[in-house]
């Protein structure tokens, strides 16, 4: 699966080149226009055989959360900080790849035997964590890495269980993968734009400029989104569930999604018997936040794949969700593109 190549590539926010290169190669043959803008977004125009009344933009972000080297100490241990929202508690005892040369390293911890009681009870602060790459001093370390190198988690893509995928960076390579599939699909008759954006995880940086240049009427954001389904939870506290189909966003910190677009998506799902769910939490946010208020504004819809253990070293999605999301978009495309004449005039 293409998703394997995409998730094995490293693209911590601000360093998306490797991912962008892969996407570029994948879509080159299918795109009518393709450009990389000044801050690194990849923007694709796929012309259709049918005219679209509405300019529709699909967006997925290329970047992933990770770490970055801030300093190398005398003994060659590497200090780092987080890029994007990572729960610092998950970092201890993980393996990572540093820089574009993928120098392997481990995030160690003081052995439990030597920890005092209060140390055991508290999280290890980020300032006490470091990466060991096996060198003995700063000089040796500097042969291999430099300050500012991005650090990605070292997690293998694997399919397991009953139709599940485990990998790092599923947020949002899964969106990228769906978008590539759409660009490659010759059965889609309508004109559309695709933006693969940079630096979503560090504050929706790429999306605004991308929307500024595309000037869409309607935008559809494809995301990997938070999923948490512990058995003891009340149903309203479960944001999304694996295997329940694409999650349609209602609200998040940055957006209130357009009511009509949402209704169209739901009607389409019902009509073609595609499972769907609502994204029930109002926390989090995605590129829609910047896209909807770019220039004179545009309407937004967000379709997400439920992703367990998001923003950690290994996340997890359901394959049926993936295919159902593509199916829903294909059926939705004509409805979005044809739009309604003057539906916004008083």
């Amino acid at each position: 699966m293409l998703l394997e190549i995409l998730t094995q590539a490293n693209g911590v926010s601000g360093n998306e080149k490797e991912v962008r290169d892969i996407i570029y190669r994948e879509v080159e043959k299918y795109a009518d226009e393709i450009k990389i803008d000044k801050i690194g977004n990849l923007i694709v125009h796929k012309k259709g055989t049918k005219k679209s009344n509405k300019k529709v933009l699909f967006a997925a972000h290329m970047d992933e959360v990770g770490l970055i080297v801030t300093d190398i100490d005398e003994q060659g241990f590497i200090k780092f900080t987080t890029v994007g929202g990572i729960d610092k508690r998950i970092l201890v005892s993980k393996t990572v790849n540093i820089g574009n040369k993928r120098v392997p390293g481990v995030i160690g911890a003081k052995p439990i035997h030597l920890q005092k009681n209060d140390e055991r009870d508290n999280t290890i602060p980020l300032s006490d964590l470091y990466i060991d790459i096996g060198v003995d001093n700063r000089n040796e370390a500097e042969q291999l890495i430099e300050i500012g190198d991005y650090i990605a988690f070292n997690t293998k893509y694997e399919e397991f269980g009953d139709g599940y995928i485990k990998a790092k960076a599923l947020d949002d390579r899964v969106g990228c993968s769906i978008l590539i599939d759409l660009i490659k699909d010759d059965h889609i008759e309508y004109d559309f734009y695709a933006a693969f954006t940079v630096m979503e995880e560090v504050g929706l940086v790429g999306a605004g400029p991308a929307a500024y240049s595309v000037k869409p009427d309607i935008s559809v954001i494809l995301e990997g989104t938070v999923c948490y389904e512990m058995p003891e939870l009340d149903s309203h506290l479960i944001p999304t569930q694996l295997g329940q189909g694409p999650a349609i966003s209602l609200i998040d910190r940055h957006s209130l999604y357009d009511y009509e677009l949402r209704e169209k998506a739901i009607a389409t799902a019902k009509r073609y018997n595609i499972p769907y769910q609502y994204r029930k939490t109002s926390s989090g946010g995605n590129d829609a936040g910047e896209i909807q208020v770019s220039r004179s504004g545009s309407k937004t819809l967000a379709l997400s794949l439920a992703t367990r253990y998001i923003h950690s070293t290994a996340s997890m999605i359901n394959k049926d969700d993936y295919y159902n999301t593509i199916l829903l978009i294909k059926h939705l495309m004509p409805i979005l593109c044809e739009g309604e004449e003057n539906d916004n005039r008083f």
């Binding site: 009340d234 149903s235 209602l250 609200i251 609502y278 109002s282």
Partner: peptide, 17 residues
């Protein structure tokens, strides 16, 4: 207030706008 969930008894859970 936006409805985000409806339980079996018909009670509506919500989030604030």
């Amino acid at each position: 207030l936006m409805a985000i969930d409806i339980d079996e008894k018909g009670f509506i859970r919500f989030t604030n706008i």
